[in-house]
Design a protein around this nucleic acid. Sequence first.
DNA 1: CGTATAGTTGGATTGTTGTCAAACCTTCAA
DNA 2: TTGAAGGTTTGACAACAATCCAACTATACG
Lengths: 106, 106
Amino acid sequence: MRLLPQPAVDDIQLTEVLHALSDPARLDVVTQLAAEFELTCSGVGESIGLHKSTMSHHYRVLRDSGVVSTRQEGRQKFMTLRKADLDQRFPGLLDAVLDAVVGATR
Amino acid sequence: MRLLPQPAVDDIQLTEVLHALSDPARLDVVTQLAAEFELTCSGVGESIGLHKSTMSHHYRVLRDSGVVSTRQEGRQKFMTLRKADLDQRFPGLLDAVLDAVVGATR
DNA sequence: CGTATAGTTGGATTGTTGTCAAACCTTCAA
DNA sequence: TTGAAGGTTTGACAACAATCCAACTATACG
């Protein structure tokens, strides 16, 4: 069970996080993770309808920017939101974005 | 004194706002506007050190995404943050981003 | 070992973005 | 009416980003 490389909390950059969240597909992933706690890549990607390699690219952007954490177990990879880390680094930001996702469609 | 075209509150899109805020130059503009309330284009651009046409491009992105409002008065254009509109549409988002800008350098 | 599963990587393509420079438009003032 | 001030627009260009497809890696299961 190994963890894929990811930035330390203090190395998470605001502009990179905002950029990571500014893509609809990635925002969708993040929203699902916020609701489900943890998902496999295929689990989270199914409802989005993009090619799996495209999704793999989005996962990398999310991981490199510090938004998600990925843990490999067997042949699957489980993603989780780095909620505690993001809350520590940028208090209120993630919640505001998640609220905005649901709130804006009301 | 005319107002340049800008999206209505309900037409402001989360992904566009996040994208607008994900560029360092634009984030800098927004931070200055949060502190100064209102500034001319040249006033806000001076400290950034980019070409004025580049800044003009960034102003447009900020305006089109609904982050700032621009009012023309004489030959100057005054920009303001659409704070109330953003707070209404995405509660807490702008404040979290502004906090993050200062907080992350502490 | 052979095969299926779960993802990643590389290449190709198409489109977007950030930047500058030069030309332009508008307004104000002499 | 000429000129200057304050921005915008257009064109060019390089860098980046999103997407797909095909080939690949690694793990698990018969």
